[in-house]
Design a protein around this nucleic acid. Structure first.
Lengths: 199, 199
DNA sequence: CCTATCTTGGACCGGTCGTTCCAAGTTAGG
DNA sequence: CCTAACTTGGAACGACCGGTCCAAGATAGG
């Protein structure tokens, strides 16, 4: 019997993700969300229930739509080291140029901001971290299978190290770091993990 | 002839640094600063001139009092690799335990937040980055002098990579990352830069 | 002691924050 | 067509934002 929503909540959430991503969740007011999405405050609160909840939802959406596909591609890429290199090259490119240049990464940015907030937000951060590290480890295992890795390398620690490098790339790119500089740093770390001097 | 300040601006700025560091500059209101410092709004604005200026001043103070001494110690430590290891061990310890546990780093946190703000703030970020990278390079040079480094290692890129690792340690520690995990990652990167399997 | 100069407390400003609420509108089963 | 169930626009809320202002107080050279 009841009336039905006059908008697509999924599409709206995508808009909110972009807004929080670019401008920062804390520094984005409800007014701006209303303006951008075209929704009224009523619909916004009825659908997402408050700003903190909305922030958590946006973070989850970002993880699913932005991060996950890239992580999955990394894990599925069986080439070994070239897969990891490709991951970072695309990461740096996405962070320094194109549509989302200098936006950083919503998850990375949230690390520095969200003080307490919902536990759900903190869990999203951890899930993101675990997912990226797992993908890195899978790619490293593939590299090891082809004998491309330095013997004695701790795969788990190496995966964590590469994950941290990715976070730092996200961070520094938002402050205007140059792509070449970031790539050189990544390459230095990767070279340290390999046996031969391949690129 | 005139009256004289009834407080010590330096001590007040230190209090503000701690406040911004722990709670985040954007999410800390003037009211809370007034409450913490005991100053009145008048004195605050007469001395520091507005919140944005205060934030820039706090960032500069943090750089001088917190970062610089550690960077200088790193650059002055001629032991080579052990100097870098010690730097990271102390960093992780400071980020995960003690008085400032889980506060992260004010400079790192600012990367993710400060959208535009004062150009002065952006400059502080770059100065911090350059200072840490320079200290890292100096330490790496010392390590190379003793033959502890893998031949062909790009010192500049390696210094940048270690700097990025430090940023990521700051970031992740704020979200509750475990010290052992962070240390293992750092060690993996460092091992990749060395020739022998020393620690 | 006087006075010019600065500091201080705290009231006050308009604006914005996130949130709530309700009358009017829309929907679809009966 | 009626009506119960839901959505929607938009007014309104109290709280807080960063910032300003001024009367009263403090200071020290004259």
């Amino acid at each position: 019997m009841p009336d039905v929503k006059h908008f697509d909540p999924d599409a709206v959430l995508d808009q909110v993700v972009r807004l929080f991503w670019r401008r920062g969740a804390d520094t984005t007011g409800i007014a701006e969300i209303v303006e951008t999405t075209g929704l009224s405050r009523s619909s916004l609160y009825a659908t997402f229930g408050g700003k903190t909840r909305l922030q958590a939802a946006a973070l989850g959406r970002y993880l699913e739509r932005q991060s996950r596909p890239v992580f999955d591609a990394l894990a599925a890429d069986t080439r070994g080291l070239p897969a990891i290199t490709a991951f970072f090259e695309r990461l740096v490119a996405a962070r320094c140029s194109g549509e989302h240049a200098r936006w950083g990464c919503l998850v990375t940015n949230t690390h520095a901001t969200a003080g307490g907030a919902l536990p759900e937000i903190r869990e999203h951060l951890d899930r993101h971290h675990d997912a990226l590290r797992a993908a890195m480890r899978t790619a490293l295992q593939a590299a090891r299978a082809e004998g491309g890795l330095r013997p004695g390398l701790d795969l788990e620690a190496a995966a964590e190290a590469l994950t941290l490098q990715a976070y730092a790339v996200n961070l520094r790119s938002r402050a205007g770091a140059e792509a070449a500089e970031l790539l050189a740093a990544v390459r230095a770390v990767l070279d340290g993990f390999t046996t031969t001097e391949e690129r």
